[in-house]
Simulated assay, not measured.
Amino acid sequence: MIINTGGRTDTVQYYTDWLLRRFSEGYVLTRNPLFPHKVSRYELTPDKVDCIVFCSKNYKPILPRLHEITDRFNTYFHYTITAYGKDIEPGVPSIEESIKTLIELSEQVERKRVAWRYDSVLLTKEYTIQRHLETFERMAQVIAPYIDRCIFSFVEMYKKLETNMPEILLFSQQDMDTLAEGFGAIAQKYGFPIQTCGTNGDFTRYGIHSSGCMTLDILGHANDIIFKDLKHKGMRQGCHCIESRDIGAYDTCMNGCKYCYANKNPRKAFENFKYHDPASPLLLGAIKPEDTIIEGVQKSFRKGN
């Protein structure tokens, strides 16, 4: 099975001690977001986990002890660095700090295990097409030698965004084409693959692949392992990723990104943090008498298993 640590929250940045403890103790509990009293238990051992996929906007807190996981497990790391400042991503380090940490991460785990995420791409009066292209190239020329690929997506206009970010501007097809053409040209100039993630649209004419950001091909190549030849159903519409299990929880990320889909509102995450206990097998709180714990299905995707 594939474990995902960063789809619901920035576990690496805010819950480092908890995350390391879970892998040390060899198991984790996660609540079902739709049925909170249903709790799944997953064994976090190398024989049960094919690969651990991380996603974060700040790996600095975990770098000194990351080897405790990478020494035992196959891994892959998504590092999100965008053009936005504190006005949109208040809890995220500056671009310069983030690039420095990405380089340190890459040197520790090897570039073949690091993907640069430039998403979500959105437009405001401040963050124009030109600003995106200029910032993307400024970052690309520095981090190109340290990444396996770049992944980007255009923001999805879901309902929460209208409330949390009223300043956002709608994309036209021409806007998306202009950005995609620019991103593709910059990636070619600096010699790294670029692909979309969860974006419905064909930008192959600009040298941009349409693929999942978490496929068995990517994870297998990064870790020199052979997976079964399986079709990826995806995690949602437009997604081509392999099935994974997220061990985080919604409404717990304190980055405060205005475009975030995982928090109802930025305040909720700070309110929930008081329920976090690094010693608990759950990210938030503890098991209650009315909870039902079930053993999560852990099937291997590795060839021969």
Rank of each mutant, 00 (worst) to 15 (best):
H132A: 07
V28A: 05
C51A: 15
C213D: 09
P266F: 14
N263F: 06
Y259P: 01
K159T: 09
I143L: 04
T82W: 06
C150K: 00
T124K: 09
H67L: 09
L44P: 07
H209Q: 15
R236V: 06
F154S: 01
N272Y: 04
R65D: 15
T178E: 12
I225T: 10
D291N: 12
V142Y: 00
S94C: 05
K100N: 14
G198A: 13
D10L: 05
L169C: 08
G248K: 00
N32K: 13
V49C: 11
R72Y: 11
R22Y: 03
V39C: 07
G234I: 15
V12Q: 01
K159Y: 11
D47C: 07
A187L: 04
P61E: 05
L179C: 09
K38C: 05
I129P: 01
G234M: 12
T80N: 06
S280Q: 13
I218H: 01
S120L: 11
F270H: 10
A115C: 12
N223L: 02
D50F: 04
Q108V: 04
F192T: 05
D246W: 00
L161Y: 06
F136P: 02
Y190M: 04
I95Y: 01
I95H: 04
A115T: 11
D71Q: 05
E290S: 14
G285K: 10
D224Q: 13
L216M: 01
Y250F: 10
I208R: 03
E97V: 05
W18N: 02
V114L: 05
T82M: 08
G285C: 05
L44S: 10
L19F: 13
P278N: 15
D17Y: 06
L34N: 13
G256T: 06
L29S: 09
L29R: 07
E181A: 15
Y76V: 09
I293L: 14
F203Y: 06
M1A: 12
K258F: 03
Y261R: 13
G285L: 05
W116Y: 04
L283R: 05
N74E: 02
L133P: 03
M165K: 00
Y79P: 08
C257S: 11
L63K: 07
Y206D: 06
